[in-house]
Simulated assay, not measured.
Amino acid sequence: MMEPVPSSVEQCPFCRKTIRRTAEVCPGCGAERQYGPTRRESLTTTGIGLVAGPAAITVVGAGLTLAVVAGVIGALMGFFVAHARHSVDRWMPPPRKPGSLA
């Protein structure tokens, strides 16, 4: 039997099973490859920007109109930060089985 080329395989970061580099799910533990940010990461950074923008403008003492504009700009910046930070593929932990403590 032929062995795979070393550059075409990798180890699962969770169970250390050897898998093909093109695998989307680890057959050993069920970990999944994630491309880009998760929905939670996008919503979190967008929410932080949505709150931080108007908060900064309010501290400065600007009016309500500028606070709304700062909120929109902050939300957009938060969204783009999430996509820039998680623009590569990465492995997400396998789903927990019901009844397990770990």
Rank of each mutant, 00 (worst) to 15 (best):
residue 37 P to F: 02
residue 90 R to Q: 06
residue 69 V to I: 15
residue 35 Y to S: 11
residue 93 P to H: 06
residue 64 L to Q: 04
residue 92 M to R: 08
residue 23 A to W: 07
residue 61 G to Q: 06
residue 34 Q to M: 14
residue 76 L to V: 12
residue 52 A to G: 09
residue 34 Q to F: 05
residue 35 Y to K: 05
residue 83 H to R: 15
residue 86 H to V: 04
residue 57 I to D: 08
residue 81 V to S: 14
residue 37 P to M: 01
residue 86 H to I: 02
residue 57 I to A: 14
residue 71 G to P: 06
residue 86 H to C: 10
residue 47 G to R: 05
residue 69 V to M: 10
residue 49 G to E: 01
residue 88 V to Y: 11
residue 51 V to A: 15
residue 63 G to I: 05
residue 40 R to Q: 12
residue 27 P to N: 06
residue 23 A to R: 11
residue 38 T to L: 13
residue 37 P to W: 00
residue 67 A to W: 01
residue 45 T to G: 09
residue 92 M to H: 08
residue 34 Q to I: 15
residue 80 F to A: 08
residue 48 I to K: 03
residue 81 V to I: 15
residue 46 T to S: 09
residue 51 V to D: 02
residue 54 P to G: 06
residue 25 V to S: 03
residue 50 L to P: 00
residue 86 H to T: 05
residue 82 A to V: 03
residue 67 A to Q: 15
residue 31 A to F: 01
residue 57 I to F: 05
residue 52 A to V: 12
residue 38 T to P: 12
residue 54 P to N: 04
residue 57 I to V: 15
residue 69 V to E: 00
residue 26 C to I: 03
residue 33 R to W: 00
residue 72 V to K: 08
residue 39 R to D: 07
residue 38 T to A: 12
residue 25 V to Y: 02
residue 58 T to A: 14
residue 73 I to V: 15
residue 48 I to E: 02
residue 88 V to N: 13
residue 34 Q to C: 13
residue 43 L to F: 08
residue 67 A to S: 12
residue 33 R to D: 01
residue 78 G to M: 11
residue 82 A to R: 03
residue 89 D to N: 08
residue 74 G to M: 03
residue 37 P to R: 04
residue 87 S to D: 13
residue 55 A to P: 01
residue 87 S to Q: 12
residue 27 P to L: 06
residue 76 L to I: 13
residue 84 A to P: 01
residue 26 C to A: 05
residue 49 G to A: 02
residue 89 D to S: 12
residue 74 G to A: 05
residue 66 L to W: 14
residue 53 G to A: 11
residue 51 V to C: 13
residue 26 C to F: 04
residue 34 Q to S: 13
residue 52 A to W: 09
residue 61 G to C: 11
residue 59 V to A: 12
residue 28 G to C: 10
residue 51 V to P: 03
residue 35 Y to L: 10
residue 88 V to R: 13
residue 77 M to K: 02
residue 52 A to E: 11
residue 67 A to M: 15
residue 94 P to R: 00
residue 80 F to V: 05
residue 45 T to K: 06
residue 85 R to V: 15
residue 26 C to L: 07
residue 59 V to L: 15
residue 23 A to D: 13
residue 66 L to M: 13
residue 69 V to N: 05
residue 35 Y to F: 10
residue 48 I to N: 04
residue 89 D to Q: 09
residue 82 A to D: 07
